[in-house]
Amino acid sequence: MEHQAIASEVTFHHHVPGSENVRRIIKTFWLLSIITIIELGMGFTIYFIHKNPDFSHGLVLGIKGAIVILSLAKAFYIVSIFMHLGDEIRNMIMTIVVPLMLFIWFIAAFLWDGNSYKNLRNNYDKHFQERTTEKKGGH
């Protein structure tokens, strides 16, 4: 079918053939579902690790890090396949992705700041530390 010019800005259409597009959508749906199930499995793992009073904080942190990476993978698939950003022209993709790089600094700086405030308070306000730290064996 010949496409009529839908907007003067659009020079060419980049449509994947119909059946292939649907297959790609369904594949992405399963991918997102499976990643979500893995994330939930990891969430439950943390729940059971917490039941042990002397759990390893490093292990919990590692699992949480893995969940963050899986969430970023989900975000990539939603934006690239569902929102079709992956099919756009490279220049256009860059005008969206490059400004978002600000988040790297944004997240690192502000989490660092929060953590630093906690450490300072724990150092200079022992009452705060004693009042808010989870007692050993509790949970």
Partner: peptide, 29 residues
């Protein structure tokens, strides 16, 4: 949507800052 991402991002990062500044935070489970 990019600007809205920054709005949401700022909210979530603010939450992260406060959470990182606390010794105790509720367990979602």
């Amino acid at each position: 949507l990019m600007s809205d991402a920054f709005t949401f991002g700022a909210f979530l990062i603010s939450y992260g800052t406060i959470r990182f500044s606390q010794n105790f935070w509720p367990d979602p489970n």
